[in-house]
């Protein structure tokens, strides 16, 4: 594909002063009249009339201002017609390129970018990527946008960096602390011309929210460390424990969980957390026993609902907070333990037979009670009697068959222990199993009593105003037989109903009585009724242990002297997890690499230009080494992964070609660019190479002026068959790393093997320039072998005068990961000696490409030494070109000997 760059015009300005911009001519005009015609976009296609031609002279003029953003280039189709309108020549194409001017500012895709990042994120963590476009020519400095953070709020210290090329905003360090600042606002400027002062700029805003992580350890705040509670009581709010946590409120990072480390083995306590206030309430859910334990130490710990962040995981240590709990004694009196007792009575047991004893237990003294007296409570058929002091239970009489039938074979009564001092009563249940058989039917001996016959007591103990407190009374009725009435309170003698049979009348009345009395008695049976009513019906509780408890809910005894929690964990005021030193010397210090390119399309053309991809080699501050520590490593990695920007290289050489096209013929422009990019980053799969030549349209003879190495490469590029280089060093790698430098001026290895592609992931750029030379050209300067092993080195120096032969040094590259071609052309410098002034780094560990091109030309400002930085740590492309022209005024350390 032939690409012609023939003419150019500049957008946005009047180019007519340059008319005619081109002219066409046919030799047919020598013997006949020729009419020249042009057509195409900008002529007879919109935009019309940009170009016009003088049909007779063939001069082409530009008539209008053009806009590159509308029409980047024009193709003018040129024809030569005879008087009959027939083509005399094969049409030619004239390409007119519209040179870009920087007339478009960058445009951000959004005015405000929003992002978020977790606090404590590692340095160099990607936060967000900004995007901006520039309508100017792609791959041109006018559209090359450099991003820069120009403002940060809060501005305490710069926390973010931006990649000036990609717009990636990353964390500068790992110190982001949501507890300090929950959000940052950045003002970012994007400037074209790579951020140059002459560029156009636009700004945008970035809001970065800092997300919370659980990087704060909670601690408890106790109003007191000593509390007390009465035994046998429950408490739903014994103590309020406030938890302090600096993490985001109401999040799991903030919500606390208080737990018992020790002291709650009996599960007496519970802690209920209020997730709105982060206050824990200590509750007593199981009564404590003073006699068993009058003092205990609760040990509490606290953590968050969420796991701790890894940044503080190691800092968290379980810290116990102690609470001293005093159990207050309560006079409990005596109880029957167990609450019921069972005896066996048979027909052989007679009157006053001692069937057992049932002693109340003094809970306060923890021994049999000595302060109570005992009385019978419910005593069906008046079967039993109890000794008021010893609690010995005896039979009143021998059990009769009637009693046996009434009781149904099983007696269940109650006894009461009465503590007159405490005014407390406790009830115990007596169960007697009447063993079947042998019961006599004789009428029992009835002692005079308040009840008649076999009446029974119904809850029949009047406690004379003693507090019975909340117990459940037992009310039992036994139906009398054989005309014996039953009653309590209302008693109807049976003899008033003589007209009925005694049994029938008794049953009838009993039925009514039962129906009438039951609701009444139930109403009177007010459990826990108000004490003090001496005549009231006060049932006696029949709880299992016979005790009458008063479960009060009491508040904790607040200690006015609030003790500080001595076990509060140490919370760092600032995140002391400093893992690396970071230079915070500025926000805009994040450039991972820099490129500079002279805009050769403009009016100010220079003969020297510098291209740096990845690591900028010297002088400027915009180097990857700006940051030590992690940031630096990351930056370097980024540099390393940058790869070769093919678009940029393409643009570079296109512009270079264009520049040469406009220059005097005195400088033949034989440029050869051979690019191997074998599966490298961004490389099109299978790409082999690219070779650019600048030369006369029909003259490829300039290839002959190339050095053998470049000619070989050019041949490869053109698809010509080339002979492989002989394997000059089959025992690769060499034992010695000394470079092998053939004598100067020796012929290159004829027909050597072609430049075998380097290994995958490598990039090779070979550049060559030839320039006219005059007499006295210095012999090529030997260059130290830049490679120890594993690479291909082509070192060539020659002049286009043809009098000097280049020296070529080729390594076997079978093990190569690099290809370095260094070529120098020393112009007509008399007495120049560059020995010692050129330094080449050792590239044995790198995977880099260095193209060094120098032209010695007159200059009065030669550097003292020409140094190529050591690119071992990068994998980039460096193209350095200098122009040094012969001068008599060379100063400094550059000594040029004949």
């Amino acid at each position: 594909e032939w690409i012609k760059f023939a003419a150019a015009c500049r957008e946005g300005e009047d180019n007519s002063k340059r008319n005619p911009i081109a002219k066409i001519h046919s030799d047919c005009a020598a013997n006949q009249q020729v009419t020249y015609r042009i057509s195409g976009v900008g002529i007879d296609q919109p935009p019309y009339g940009i170009f016009v031609i003088n049909q007779k002279t063939g001069e082409i003029n530009i008539t209008s201002i053009v806009d590159r953003e509308v029409t980047p280039f024009f193709i003018i189709y040129c024809r030569a017609l005879n008087s009959l309108g027939q083509d005399l020549e094969k049409p030619l194409e004239l390409r007119v390129r519209v040179l870009d001017i920087n007339d478009n500012p960058p445009v951000f895709s959004m005015s405000t970018f929003v992002g978020e990042i977790e606090e404590n994120s590692n340095a160099n963590t990607l936060v967000m990527v900004l995007n901006a476009t520039d309508a100017d020519e792609p791959n041109n400095l006018n559209s090359k946008i450099a991003f820069k953070i120009i403002r940060q709020e809060p501005s305490d210290s710069p926390m973010f960096i931006i990649n000036r090329y990609t717009g990636e905003i990353r964390t500068m360090n790992n110190f982001l602390d949501r507890e300090q600042y929950g959000q940052y606002s950045l003002a970012v400027r994007g400037s074209d011309r790579d951020g140059g002062a002459d560029g156009m700029s636009a700004e945008c805003e970035c809001n970065i929210k800092i997300l919370d992580v659980n990087d704060n350890i909670p601690y408890m705040e106790l109003p007191t460390q000593s509390i007390s509670i009465e035994e046998n009581s429950l408490n739903s709010n014994l103590l309020q424990i406030r938890v302090i946590d600096l993490d985001e409120e109401f999040s799991a990072n903030w919500m606390a969980v208080i737990f018992f480390i020790s002291g709650n083995e009996g599960n007496w306590f519970e802690i209920e957390m209020n997730e709105r206030t982060n206050v824990g309430t200590l509750k007593v859910v199981k009564p404590l026993d003073f006699e068993a334990m009058n003092n205990l130490q609760l040990s509490l710990g606290v953590r968050n609902k969420a796991e701790f962040h890894q940044s503080i995981m190691s800092q968290y240590k379980l810290t116990a907070t102690a609470i001293s709990v005093t159990v207050l004694n309560v006079v409990e009196g005596s109880v029957f333990r167990p609450g019921s007792k069972t005896f066996v009575v048979n027909s052989n047991m007679g009157q006053n037979y001692k069937i057992g004893e049932y002693v109340a237990w003094d809970l306060d003294a923890n021994r049999p009670s000595t302060t109570v007296r005992y009385v019978m409570g419910r005593n069906p058929t008046d079967l039993l009697a109890i000794d008021s002091k010893t609690a010995i239970i005896t039979l009143r009489n021998k059990v009769t068959m009637e009693q046996y039938k009434i009781l149904g074979g099983k007696y269940q009564g109650t006894i009461l222990s009465i503590d007159d001092a405490l005014q407390r009563t406790c009830t115990g249940t007596i169960v007697i199993n009447l063993e079947n058989g042998g019961w006599k039917t004789e009428r029992p001996n009835v002692n005079g009593s308040t009840t008649s016959a076999y009446g029974l007591t119904s809850g029949g103990v009047t406690t004379n105003g003693y507090t019975t407190g909340g117990g459940v009374g037992t009310v039992t009725f036994a139906v009398g037989t054989n005309g014996y009435g039953v009653g309590t309170g209302v008693y109807q003698p049976l003899r008033d109903n003589v007209h009925f049979g005694p049994a029938g009348i008794g049953l009838l009345i009993m039925g009514f009585l039962v129906l009438g009395l039951v609701p009444f008695l139930l109403m009177c049976c007010d459990c826990g009724g108000a004490p003090g009513g001496g005549a009231a019906f006060e049932p006696v509780p029949e709880c299992s242990d016979g005790a009458i408890h008063s479960w009060a809910v009491e508040g904790a005894q607040a200690d006015p002297g609030v003790l500080a929690n001595s076990a509060v964990p140490c919370i760092p005021v600032t995140n002391a997890n400093v893992i690396e030193y970071v230079d915070n010397s500025g926000v805009y210090t994040n450039e991972y690499g820099a490129r500079e390119m002279q805009d050769l399309g403009g009016g100010e053309r220079t003969t020297g230009f510098e291209l740096t991809d990845g690591v900028k080699m010297s002088g400027g501050p915009e180097i990857c080494q700006e940051y030590p520590g992690t940031l630096r490593r990351n930056s370097m990695r980024e540099c390393r992964e940058g790869g070769l920007n093919m678009n940029f290289m393409e643009s570079y050489f296109c512009q270079k070609a264009y520049a040469y096209a406009d220059e005097d013929e005195g400088r033949p422009s034989n440029d050869c660019l051979l690019i191997y990019d074998i599966e490298g980053a961004g490389s099109p799969a299978g790409s082999v190479g690219c070779c650019s030549f600048i030369g006369e349209d029909l003259d490829d003879s300039f290839l002959d002026t190339l050095g053998p190495k470049f000619k070989k490469l050019a041949d490869i590029s053109l698809g010509k068959d080339v002979e492989p280089f002989p394997d000059s060093d089959p025992s690769w790698p060499p034992k010695s790393t000394e470079p092998v430098c053939p004598p100067q001026g020796t012929e290159p290895t004829g027909g050597g093997h072609p430049p075998i592609s380097p290994r995958f992931g490598t990039t090779t750029v070979i550049s060559e320039n030839t320039y006219p030379s005059g007499p006295g050209v210095q012999h090529p300067t030997p260059i130290p072998d830049p490679l120890g092993y594993g690479n291909v080195t082509v070192t060539e120096s020659y002049t286009s005068s043809g009098t000097l032969k280049p020296s070529v040094h080729i390594h076997d590259n079978r093990h190569a990961s690099n290809v370095v071609v260094t070529e120098r052309v020393v112009g007509p410098i008399s007495g120049a000696d560059l020995q010692g002034m050129l330094e080449m780094p050792d590239l044995r560990d790198g995977s880099n490409v260095i193209v060094t091109e120098r032209v010695i030309a007159p200059s009065s400002s030669l550097p003292t030494t020409l140094t190529i930085p050591d690119p071992r740590q990068s994998s980039n492309v460096v193209v350095t070109e200098r122009v040094i022209q012969p001068t008599s005024g060379i100063v400094g350390n550059l000594s040029m000997h004949p």
Partner: peptide, 26 residues
């Protein structure tokens, strides 16, 4: 022969120079 020449704007002495088309082979 049928050729195109383009004008060189960079001549320093104001003279007009014409260049035949150059080409770049890719």
């Amino acid at each position: 022969d049928f050729r195109i020449q383009v004008r060189d704007y960079n001549t320093k002495n104001g003279t007009i120079k014409w260049h035949s088309l150059r080409r770049q082979k890719r």
